[in-house]
């Protein structure tokens, strides 16, 4: 009994130490304002308030295919990838809800692949791992210790703005022309709970005067003609723009050099093409302002400098 008690005390003190250190690895003012969990789970919270124009929601297809810094460089719009691995619609909704607490985005893009993911099929251990990761931020943000050893005043900046930089190449073996038809083994279907969640998102965006856009980034494995047909019809029904890079818009992706994993995700070179197209689409809408010369957005230029420098290093 005494030993069990000793073990419990040891673990309790360890938990306190881990949580204490977690706080100092995150921006303290944000932790004070939004709490440890939100600051940890939703990276956008660390951004300066009311500074982000565009939010991208979705799974790994988003953080591998859209680089906000490329859009900043080309068009001067501030974008953020609010993406999570295997994100499900309810998590995307939660993210959007938290994001608009501190930001007033004018556009929100949802990568449509998450509409086909069954929220109930997310394994329970992944849900637990997701919770633990955010309640124990030290695991996710442990590298932030480096910020205490830098002269850079903007050291808390997430320079990639949610994008994950990948240069690896694993060429695809699929036919670049008809991969959409090959993937049509099962008929695509949007679950009622995802439709419901999407309706809630539309409502949230309308209330906050946000333009909602559905998006399908190039992916030879995750996307198919039947998904395309389904989303196209659904977007028309909901009166939402739908941008598809697999059938409607050919970005000229070279599947032998611009994918990191045989056609599922793009690498940096593919992401540049997607980001550039999205920048031009945003420009066409005419609802965003170029902030590159704006003194208020100086930190974005600083972040871009670091981003570019990091690219050179690799």
């Amino acid at each position: 009994m005494k030993k069990a008690l000793k073990g419990i005390v040891f673990v309790l003190i360890l938990c306190m130490l881990v949580e204490g250190i977690s706080v100092i690895l995150l921006p303290l003012d944000k932790v004070k304002k939004y709490g440890l969990y939100k600051t940890s789970a939703y990276e956008i919270v660390a951004e300066e308030e009311d500074s982000v124009d565009v939010i991208f929601l979705g799974d790994s297809l988003v953080y591998s295919s859209i680089s906000p810094m490329e859009i900043w460089d080309g068009y001067g719009y501030t974008c953020y990838d609010c993406a999570q691995p295997a994100q499900i619609m309810p998590y995307a909704y939660d993210y959007l809800e938290v994001a608009i607490e501190s930001q007033h985005p004018k556009m929100v893009f949802i990568e449509a692949n998450i509409m086909f993911r069954d929220p109930d099929k997310l394994p329970f251990y992944k849900k637990i791992a997701y919770r633990i990761e955010n309640y124990v931020p030290i695991v996710k943000y442990h590298s932030n210790w480096k910020k205490y050893f830098t002269k850079n005043k903007n050291s808390w900046l997430n320079v990639n703005k949610g994008y994950i930089y990948i240069t690896g190449v694993k060429p695809s073996k699929k036919d670049p022309l008809n991969y959409m038809d090959i993937n049509d083994e099962n008929e695509a279907y949007i679950l009622p709970e995802n439709r419901e969640c999407f309706d809630d998102m539309i409502k949230l965006c309308e209330e906050n005067d946000i333009k909602l856009v559905l998006l399908a980034v190039p992916s030879q494995k995750s996307w198919s003609r039947s998904k395309y047909n389904m989303v196209k019809e659904y977007a028309a029904e909901k009166n939402v723009d739908f941008i598809d890079f697999n059938i409607d818009h050919d970005l000229g992706i070279d599947w032998s050099t611009e994918t990191k994993d045989r056609g599922n995700h793009l690498n940096y070179w593919g992401a540049r093409k997607v980001s550039d197209y999205l920048g031009s689409y945003m420009e066409e809408t005419g609802i965003l302002t170029d902030h590159r010369e704006d003194e208020k957005y100086k930190s974005w230029n600083t972040a871009y400098g670091i981003y570019k420098n990091n690219l050179k290093k690799r």
């Binding site: 590298s143 210790w145 994950i164």
Partner: peptide
């Protein structure tokens, strides 16, 4: 334990 958690080379990058 804390050295491992903080200075371990795991996660992004």
């Amino acid at each position: 334990i804390l050295l491992l958690l903080i200075f371990g080379a795991y996660g992004q990058g």
